[in-house]
């Protein structure tokens, strides 16, 4: 005799469990964790380089985990800025999952950080499904990719807190409509925040760095015991 048992369980329960552990550990240390997601070539690594350069003069303790299917090239690029940078080579897997981040974090020189930047594998689909324990997903959309991406890849735009419209200096050379991109992103995620960035000319990465500093302040505030 067969029996049908109703089940209500997230398929990625094990990933969510590990992500929960990571999130608790990060909260205890008041570490802000950002998960950068984009298609390949949108500029994640360059954004991280610029961000690390900007944060180099501050007392902030920062570390970077950078995911790729192959090569250590990104970590080599990011190590130049004086902060620990570890490569997570997934060996074919198209996304990072929470267990990969947990293992990589154990290899960092110290878990006491103000900011942990995680660069996901270049892919607008799969990384959206995996919680890494981060405070926020940041989706990078470079203007050369086209303004139709928010509706073509709604999953990631729905789950991201911030969208960077990147390579914005190239806007005059493309048919990209910033209004359409922002409007479409807000169709799937009315709360998504939007900043414009460029690694080669104005407006630079200043807005993103300030956004990080604001989130850091919030995280510290949240971690402080309530006064009576």
């Amino acid at each position: 005799m067969t029996e049908r048992v109703e089940v209500r369980q997230n398929v990625l329960k094990e990933n969510d469990r590990i992500a929960g552990e990571l999130r608790r550990g990060l909260a205890e240390r008041a570490t802000l964790c950002l998960n950068l997601i984009s298609s390949p070539g949108a500029g994640k690594t360059s954004i991280l380089e610029g961000t690390l350069e900007a944060l180099g003069g501050t007392p902030l303790r920062v570390a970077v985990l950078t995911g790729d299917i192959q090569t250590e090239r990104d970590a080599d690029r990011l190590k130049r800025y004086g902060f620990p940078a570890l490569q997570i080579t997934t060996g074919g897997t198209c996304h990072l999952d929470a267990s990969m981040v947990q293992r990589a974090m154990a290899s960092l020189p110290s878990p006491d950080l103000d900011l942990l930047l995680v660069e996901n594998v270049g892919n607008l689909v799969c990384p959206a499904s995996y919680d890494l324990g981060e405070d926020a997903k940041v989706v990078v959309l470079s203007v050369t990719e086209g303004d139709d991406k928010p509706l073509k890849y709604p999953g990631i735009f729905r789950r991201a807190r911030l969208m960077l419209l990147h390579k914005i200096d190239l806007l005059p050379h493309t048919r990209f409509s910033r209004d359409a991109a922002v409007a479409d992103a807000r169709r799937v995620n009315p709360e998504i925040e939007v900043l414009e960035t460029s690694c080669v000319s104005e407006p630079g990465l200043g807005a993103f760095v300030r956004w990080i500093e604001q989130r850091l302040a919030e995280k510290r505030q949240a971690g402080r015991p309530a006064r009576d």
Partner: peptide, 29 residues
């Protein structure tokens, strides 16, 4: 195409209540 315009009353403030799940619903044993 994810437009939040309500076909019933025309207002634009709608939120997603389904469509991003990935979950086990039943087992037949």
């Amino acid at each position: 195409e994810f437009l939040a315009d309500c076909p019933a009353c025309g207002s634009t403030g709608a939120s997603m209540v389904a469509g991003d799940e990935l979950g086990l619903s039943f087992l037949e044993l």
